[in-house]
Every structure is written in C-alpha cells, then in structure tokens.
Simulated assay, not measured.
Amino acid sequence: MRLAANTFALQLDDRSFDLKPSLRAASYLHQKYGFPALYQAVRDGSFTAIMDLITATSEDVPVASIHSILDAREQLLEFVLILSGADTTSNEPQSGELISFDEYVADLYKVGAGHLGWAPDVVWNATPVEILAARAGRVDLLKDILTAVFGSKEQSADASNVASNRDDLNAIGDLTVHSLGAR
C-alpha cells in the first residue's frame, strides 16, 4: 500500500493535472462502465470514456487538444488500474479472497464511515489507500490503548502468576479453617 498514490499526475502537453482515485469516482465509473470495459474503451481511444475518466477524478478539467489527450492513453490505462484497486507498484500476485468491486466499495465505506467515524462525504472523497492507512492507524492506536490498560503479554503472565499464588494462599486458608473446625 503506497500512500503517495492518493493522486495521479496526468501529463498533457506541457501541463500536469492531478487525478484523484476517490471512492466516489471509482464507484461512479464502475457503475457506468465496469473497469474491464473502461480499460478497453480508453485503450481503444474512446474520447468519451477518457473524458468521463478525467472529469470524474479531477477538479481541473484539462483544456488540451484531442490529439494530446489520446496520446495520454498509456498514463490513463495505469490510472484505471489504480482506480480499480490494483497495486501497480508490485509485480507479486495478490492473495486473499476475491470479492466483487461493489463489495470492495461497500467494505471500504463501512471502514471509513463505521470504524473510523468519518462523515459520508469525507469517505466518498477519500482514496482506498487513505482509508486503509487510516484504518491501520486506528488499529495501532487501539492496540496501544489495550496495552496501556491491560498490560503486555509479559505483564499478563505475571498477573496470572499472582492470581495463581493468591488461589494457593486461599486454599491454604481454607485448609486451616477446615482443620481448626474439625478439631
């Protein structure tokens, strides 16, 4: 997971435009095209699909020639992969259970709005990388809190020894009481 992937610089002529693979843009484009069809449309040079991709992911719609936009197809194909949740920085195969993109978006939304407590608009404008990094930070925080409250595993082992010793002492007391009462 690379946090720097929260924007993608699209180079057109001598200008650069930032494209953001937000959850909202990914969901919208998936519903409109599906990622395999969007990828194919961009590869085939569909100006409509390319402009849908750019306008859904950028606040600054480029004013450029059709020729320069079509020349940017290789960049946009990589961006479609990022938008779909693929890790373009690694050549290693991804492991884990395959889920549909709709389930992926729903799970990320649950994490953002539910686990992290973000407002819906914040979740929709965040990238999957941002949501997952924030979740990892929240998990680390909760682990630190649990360790501070309950101690580490080593402290827990010491506590169980104390409890065991206390039980042994209580058992001796019970034997003494029973022994005295039996006389």
Score class of each variant (00 low, 15 high):
Val42Gly: 03
Arg43Leu: 08
Asp44Gln: 06
Phe47Tyr: 13
Thr48Arg: 11
Thr48Tyr: 08
Ala49Glu: 00
Ile50Cys: 05
Met51Phe: 10
Asp52Lys: 03
Ile54Phe: 01
Thr55Asp: 12
Ala56Tyr: 00
Thr57Asp: 02
Ser58Glu: 01
Ser58Thr: 02
Glu59Phe: 10
Val61Leu: 05
Pro62Leu: 03
Val63Trp: 12
Ala64Met: 08
Ala64Lys: 07
Ile66Phe: 10
His67Gln: 14
His67Phe: 15
Ile69Trp: 02
Ile69Phe: 03
Asp71Lys: 08
Ala72Arg: 02
Arg73Ile: 06
Arg73Phe: 05
Glu74Ser: 15
Glu74Gln: 12
Gln75Asn: 07
Leu76Thr: 01
Glu78Arg: 13
Glu78Trp: 08
Val80Gly: 00
Val80Cys: 00
Val80Lys: 01
Val80Leu: 00
Leu81Ala: 07
Leu83Trp: 00
Ser84Phe: 02
Ala86Gly: 05
Thr88Gln: 09
Thr89Phe: 12
Ser90Thr: 12
Glu92Val: 14
Gln94Ala: 13
Gln94Arg: 12
Gln94Thr: 14
Ser95Gly: 12
Gly96Ser: 01
Glu97Trp: 04
Leu98Thr: 15
Leu98Phe: 08
Leu98Pro: 13
Ser100Asp: 02
Ser100Thr: 03
Phe101Thr: 00
Asp102Ser: 15
Tyr104Gln: 01
Tyr104Met: 01
Val105Leu: 03
Ala106Met: 13
Ala106Tyr: 08
Asp107Met: 15
Lys110His: 14
Ala113Arg: 07
Gly117His: 10
Pro120Glu: 01
Asp121Cys: 12
Asp121Lys: 08
Trp124Gln: 09
Trp124Tyr: 06
Trp124Lys: 06
Asn125Gln: 07
Thr127Ser: 04
Pro128Asn: 00
Val129Tyr: 03
Val129Lys: 01
Glu130Met: 01
Glu130Ala: 01
Ile131His: 01
Leu132Ala: 05
Leu132Val: 04
Ala133Leu: 05
Ala134Asn: 15
Arg135Trp: 07
Arg135Phe: 08
Ala136Leu: 05
Ala136Ile: 03
Gly137Cys: 05
Arg138Ala: 08
Asp140Tyr: 06
Leu142Asp: 11
Lys143Thr: 09
Lys143Ala: 09
Asp144Val: 06
Ile145Leu: 09
Ile145Gln: 14
Ile145Cys: 09
Ile145Val: 11
Thr147Tyr: 08
Thr147Phe: 09
Val149Ser: 11
Phe150Cys: 07
Ser152His: 00
Glu154Cys: 06
Gln155Asp: 13
Gln155Ile: 10
Ser156Asp: 14
